[in-house]
Write a protein that binds this DNA or RNA. Structure first.
Lengths: 339, 339
DNA sequence: CTGAAAGCGCTTACAG
DNA sequence: CTGAAAGCGCTTACAG
C-alpha cells in the first residue's frame, strides 16, 4: 500500500519514471542519459533531455547515494565558522572539490568534542564520501571510530594514523624558524613568543615553538614565552604581559595572525611603535594581515594548496584505505611592515 | 540478485536489520527505539540500545530521507566563505539549527549565478529541508525555480515573493540614518558615503543610502558619494577618491566594515587622523571592528538573531508554504573610536 | 507491544 | 540499444 505523503514537503516531485513514461522508454534508459553512460541513440537521448528540461526533473541524490554508496560529497569540519584561517581554507577546499565535481559541506564543532562526534556522525549518516577535519581538536576516539566505520578522514596538522586516515601537515616548525631567523637578521635581540595557551601541549603550538627555540638556540638567545587565548583578546593579553615585564622584548613571534592583531592593537594603544619599538610577526597570512596598519608580517600557509592536497588525500584514501603517505607542505615568510 | 558492492566504500556497514537480528526482534521495533517513538517494553528497549552500541549502528540518513522526504538538514548559501559577516551569520544559523536538532550545511557561490544554480540544485538533490540564501546576488530565476520545486527558501535583505519563499530584512535604511545622524550630532558637516559599486542599484546599497540621504536632507547637507568594490581594497580606493577631492569631507559612512577597514588603513597611511580629521563609520559590526586601531564605530546587525529568525522563517514555511510574513530586524549603532 | 509487507527513487547485473 | 526485476536501508499503515 502506498505511504501517505500528505504532509510531505515535496509532493508532486518529478521522478525518473515520470520522465521515462513521458518519453516512452524505460527508467534504465533515462538513468543512462542522466549519468552520461552512453549506449543510447542520439535521437532518444535528445528526446529524454528535452523531457527532463520540460518536466524539471532533478535526480534524487539520496536515492542514488543509497544505492551506490557514493554521494560525490565531502565534509569539512572545523572548530569555528568565524575563524578567518579556517574559512579561507574552506574556500580552497571548495575550489578543489568543485574541480572534481564534488559538493563540499562545511560544519563546525565549536571546539567541543561532543559536538564534533555529532557532526561527524551526521555527515557519516548523510553519506559524505569523506571528511577533512581541521583543527582536529576533538577526541581521537571519535575520529578513529569514524574512520573505522568506513568513512575516510583527512587530518590537518595532527599526527594520527590508522585505517582510512590520512594526514596533511604544514611545516609549522620551519615557519617558527623562518620568522625567528628573520627577526634575528633584522637586528632584534630580545625575541619573545606569544603562544596559544590551549595548545601549549598540542602539536600545532609545539611545532611552531620548536622552530622558534631552534633559531634562538643557534643565535645564543634566550626564550621568552607568554601565552593567551587563541583570539584577538588573547593577543591583547599577551601584549600586556610583554609590556609588564622588566626587560621588554624588541620583537614578538605570535602563534597566529588573530592573536597578532590583538598584540598590534594593544601595543598601539600603549604608545609603542611597531616595528620601531617592537617588531611583530604572525602566522597563517589571513586576509586581515594586509588590512591593518602597520601591515602584518607573517608566515604564510597556502590555503589553496592545502585545500587541494587535503582533497587529493581524501581521493587516494578511497583507493588505498590502508593510508596515503603523509604530506608536508612548505610555508613562506611574508615580510610586510610590522617586522 | 544482489548488487555487486565490491568497490563500495562502506561494505560491511551495520544496518537496522543487523541490529534486529542480533536482538531477535523485527526491524520495526528497532526503528521505533532509534526514533524514540515509544511503544516498546523497557527491557526490549535496553537490549536494542545495547546492540546498537555494540554493533556501532548508525542510521542511514539517506534511506530515512528518501522515505520521509525530510532530512533535518538546512542549507545556507552565501557568496563567499571568507566574508566575515557571512561566516558570523553562519554561526548564528548553526546555533539556531542545532537547537532544533537540525544539521546546517554551508555552501558558497562565489557570486556566480551559474554556481548558485549548481549549489541550490545540489542541496535540493541532497534533500535539505530548506535553504537560507544570503546575499542572494544570483539569478532570481534560480531562486524561484528552487522554491517552485518544493524547497522552501528564505532570503535575507532581498524582496522577492512567491510560493515557498520568505524574507528576513535588516533595517538597513534605519542603519544609514543612525550612522549619519550620529555624525551630524558629533559636529561633522561634510559627510561622504562610500558605497559598493556592485550594489549601487541593489537593494542592500540603496537602502543604506536612503537613510544617509534622509539624514543629510533633514540637516540641509549635500550628498557626497564615492564607490568601490565591496572589499578592503575597494575601501582603500574610496579613501583615495575622498582625499583627492578638493573639498575634503570630515566624515565617511561606509557600505560595510570590510570596506571601512580599507578606508581606515588608507587614511592612516596618508597621515590623516581618525577620528580627528575624518570620522569613519562602518556597517555590520564584524569581529574585526574591535581589533583595529582606532576601533571602528559601526552599525550592528545582530547575526545571532538574524540566523535564528531565518531558521524560524524556514520552519514556518513548511507549515504555510504560501508565505510567512516578512520580518524586519532592528539595527543598532555601536560607537567606538573611529567616529 | 510487535511483525510482515510495501515502497521511497534510483542503479545494476542480466536478458533480450 | 533497451527492458523488467531486484534491491540500497529505512519508515509506515495495517494486522495480529
Amino acid at each position: 500500500m502506498s505511504i501517505d505523503r500528505a504532509d510531505s514537503g515535496r509532493r508532486g516531485v518529478v521522478t525518473l519514471d515520470d520522465v521515462a513514461r513521458r518519453v516512452g522508454v524505460s527508467a534504465r534508459t533515462v538513468s543512462r542519459v542522466v549519468n552520461d553512460q552512453g549506449g543510447c541513440t542520439p535521437a532518444t537521448r535528445e528526446r529524454i533531455l528535452a523531457a527532463i528540461d520540460e518536466l524539471g526533473y532533478r535526480p534524487n541524490l539520496l536515492a542514488r547515494g543509497l544505492l551506490t554508496n557514493r554521494s560525490d560529497t565531502i565534509g569539512l569540519v572545523g572548530a569555528e565558522m568565524a575563524d578567518p584561517f579556517f574559512t579561507e581554507l574552506a574556500d580552497g577546499v571548495q575550489r578543489a572539490a568543485r574541480e572534481l565535481r564534488r559538493t563540499m559541506f562545511f560544519a563546525s564543532t565549536d571546539r567541543d568534542a561532543v559536538r564534533q562526534a555529532q557532526v561527524l556522525s551526521s555527515l557519516y549518516g548523510h553519506g559524505v564520501d569523506g571528511v577533512i577535519v581541521f583543527p582536529a581538536a576533538g577526541s581521537e576516539a571519535d575520529i578513529l571510530a569514524t574512520a573505522a566505520n568506513g568513512l575516510p578522514v583527512v587530518l590537518v596538522d595532527r599526527e594520527l594514523s590508522g585505517h582510512n586516515i590520512a594526514v596533511v601537515n604544514n611545516d609549522l616548525r620551519a615557519g617558527g624558524l623562518l620568522a625567528t631567523e628573520h627577526l634575528i637578521r633584522s637586528g632584534r635581540r630580545r625575541i619573545a613568543m606569544a603562544t596559544d595557551e590551549n595548545t601549549l601541549h598540542d602539536q600545532a603550538g609545539e611545532r611552531r615553538q620548536a622552530g622558534y627555540r631552534d633559531a634562538l638556540g643557534s643565535a645564543g638567545m634566550a626564550e621568552r614565552l607568554v601565552s593567551g587565548a587563541n583570539t584577538v583578546d588573547g593577543g591583547r593579553a599577551c601584549a600586556r604581559q610583554l609590556l609588564a615585564s622588566g626587560d621588554r622584548p624588541d620583537a614578538v613571534f605570535v602563534f597566529n595572525d588573530l592573536m597578532a592583531l590583538g598584540v598590534l592593537q594593544e601595543l598601539g594603544r600603549s604608545g609603542i611603535t611597531v616595528p620601531g619599538d617592537i617588531a611583530v610577526v604572525g602566522f597563517d597570512d589571513i586576509a586581515m594581515c594586509d588590512a591593518v596598519a602597520p601591515r602584518l608580517t607573517t608566515v604564510r600557509i597556502d590555503r589553496d594548496r592545502l585545500g587541494r592536497v587535503a582533497v587529493e588525500q581524501l581521493q587516494s584514501l578511497r583507493d588505498r584505505p590502508g593510508g596515503a603517505d603523509p604530506v608536508c607542505l612548505d610555508v613562506e615568510l611574508v615580510v610586510r611592515e610590522s617586522g
